[in-house]
Design a protein around this nucleic acid. Structure first.
Lengths: 146, 146
DNA sequence: CTAATGTCTCTAGCAACTATAGCTTCAAGG
DNA sequence: CCTTGAAGCTATAGTTGCTAGAGACATTAG
């Protein structure tokens, strides 16, 4: 039996994250020791590793919830899982396209910056005027921050 | 003079977002009409367009705050702005690399799904076992959700 | 003049965690 | 056996960048 700390170390997931997953119902409520500490077995480790891996591949927790409920019913057909994966692939491709355009634009900005005064800075200038851009990297409904 | 709605329409930013930017100090407090409605001039429009454009390019609000304070002091040298842009470029490149790996992995998963039962589904299987992966798309601190 | 639209403030919510505070429990060393 | 320090517990609040809702006032078109 693993304590929450060992489980986290083995799966590569932080302790508070595990408790969070339990809270939102992605992990079942863990059994407790005499002193009220959570204890986990092999099944919990597998489930957590599954979640971790899917998160690494960019699946949302909602998608993971669906995938888990699929894998909990192994007799059902596989199309649903396939559809989730395909949707995720499409999303990744969209973001890839967008990031590629952003990269080109940022490179242009950075290269053109001559290192003088702010008043002449291409970075500031380009940010202030979209028409100086070569690609139309506009508003494809949000695709930003880390 | 523009009302907040017109300003938003011209800059391509939603009205609550403008109020939010004011609240967190990215935009100065707007002057008010007799009836307490915000009124904006050309400068506010330019500033908001700047923010919008930088957001489109993936800069965080913190980075934008810095860029704005730089652009408010046009006599200063340009290195700081250049550094922020380069950092953003580096970030975009990191995410691009990661997404490219994810795409390859997802394609492998999807292609191998034979459309049978969940029990044999590659999607589920691969998610449950990272060693089935070809690339090491692991934990480069978070690269997920839309 | 009224009705519709726009704006105001304030609060709460989203994802997916992360951090803090103030406890209790556990494992190891002396 | 006892103490000490790490690890665990709960509960709450914070993060980023908005978005949505409620309920009240302002403005404008017909």
């Amino acid at each position: 039996m693993l304590t929450i700390g060992k489980l986290g170390a083995q799966a590569g997931v932080k302790v508070p994250t595990i408790r969070y997953y339990e809270q939102i119902g992605l992990l079942p409520e863990a059994g407790r020791s005499a002193g009220n500490q959570r204890l986990y077995g092999r099944k919990a480790l597998e489930r957590l590793a599954f979640i971790r891996h899917a998160r690494d591949l960019g699946f949302t927790l909602e998608a993971i919830r669906d995938l888990l409920s699929l894998s909990d019913n192994p007799e059902q057909p596989c199309v649903a899982a396939d559809a989730i994966a395909r949707a995720q692939l499409a999303e990744v491709e969209r973001r890839l396209a967008r990031l590629t355009a952003l990269k080109a634009e940022l490179e242009r900005m950075v290269v053109q910056c001559a290192g003088g005064k702010i008043a002449d800075c291409r970075v500031i200038e380009v940010l202030g005027d979209h028409s100086l851009c070569s690609t139309d990297h506009r508003h494809p409904e949000s695709e930003a921050s880390p």
